[in-house]
């Protein structure tokens, strides 16, 4: 690309003794044998892969044969290139690839003057073209962005937990107050929304209290009657990044988020004790209905899960 065009190739006798043309290897014939052996190993490896494919689908045989084949071929080709070809070193000149000052000025002038000439004479056309293109850019963004999904609206503030929602397991089985023993833990959903991400709730039985007993004393102000018969329920969505807080340490009475190890104190209303989670897990107020099933007193009193801008 930068070579001078020459009238014709200049032929000069060059001795083959020229050190640049000598192979790198001291004993090329031995290297050749080794490279050939290596390539034969490669060839056998590929044959092996073909055979392995037909007689077995064991991943190890396929990987081993293909790997050894490629290794052998690769090593052989590299040895050929490195030891058996002209060792050089060879040199190539670099040339400035930037243009001359005159060429640069000419380019600038062409853009400025021609462009200026056109735009200045036809200002209206220039303006209209820019307007059209700009409008196109804006309106194209509508389908490109707006069609993707719904606006958040109030979705992030809502769950399907309502007043009197029946607590059910992932299979939809309603939960009786007698189902769990002390230290028991269960993932529950409002009936009809089994498996729903924002509704996932972790139900813990802290003590085996009877219907007449006072609720388990949580050290969370204003929530004295949110538990029932020793049960408490918290949103299972971590307030850090929304992972399910499924790790319950019964003796320590903490819930731990398996993703980033935020630690929530169960007895204090799931306030975070350690780690990156900023807020307590929202608590679901519970009650037991006449048939002995666990129900919610009300939905969550705040948005569940991680923080977001619209959250007040």
């Amino acid at each position: 690309m930068t070579d001078e065009p020459t009238a014709g190739p200049s032929l000069a006798p060059v001795s083959l003794d020229d050190p640049h043309l000598q192979p790198y290897a001291k004993h090329p014939e031995r290297v050749q044998v080794l490279a050939a052996l290596s390539m034969i190993i490669g060839f056998l490896g590929f044959i092996g892969f073909g055979v392995a494919y037909w007689v077995s689908d064991q991943n190890q045989w396929l990987g081993a044969t293909l790997g050894v084949g490629l290794l052998g071929l690769g090593a052989g080709v590299i040895a050929w290139g490195k030891y058996l070809m002209a060792q050089g070193p060879f040199v190539e000149e670099r040339h400035d690839f930037h243009s001359t000052e005159a060429e640069r000025s000419a380019m600038t002038a062409a853009i400025v003057e021609r462009g200026g000439m056109v735009v200045q004479r036809r200002k209206v056309l220039g303006g209209l073209a820019a307007l059209g293109a700009g409008t196109l850019g804006v309106v194209l963004a509508f389908p490109l962005i707006r069609s993707l999904g719904p606006k958040p609206g109030t979705t992030l503030f809502q769950t399907n937990w309502k007043k009197n929602s029946l607590l059910v397991t992932t299979e939809g089985r309603p939960v009786l107050a007698s189902d769990l023993d002390t230290g028991g833990v269960l993932t529950v959903f409002p009936q009809g929304f089994e498996g729903s991400s924002p509704d996932q709730t972790i139900l813990i039985r802290l003590a085996q209290l009877g219907p007449e007993d006072p609720p388990f004393p949580l050290s969370a102000p204003g929530r004295t009657d949110w538990g029932v018969q020793g049960y408490v329920a918290y949103s299972k969505m971590c307030t850090h990044l929304g992972c399910p807080v499924g790790l319950y340490q019964e003796q320590d009475q903490v819930l731990v988020c398996p993703c980033h190890q935020s630690i929530f104190n169960v007895l204090a209303g799931a306030v975070p004790e350690f780690g990156p989670a900023p807020r307590p897990l929202p608590q679901l107020p519970l009650k037991v209905d006449a048939a002995g099933y666990l129900r919610s007193q009300a939905g969550y009193d705040q948005a569940v899960g991680p923080g977001f801008w619209e959250r007040p």
């Binding site: 293909l66 050894v68 490629l70 290794l71 071929l73 690769g74 080709v77 590299i78 290139g81």
Partner: peptide
């Protein structure tokens, strides 16, 4: 050769 080695 290096392509083969990487693949290998």
């Amino acid at each position: 050769g290096f392509l083969f080695m990487t693949t290998a």
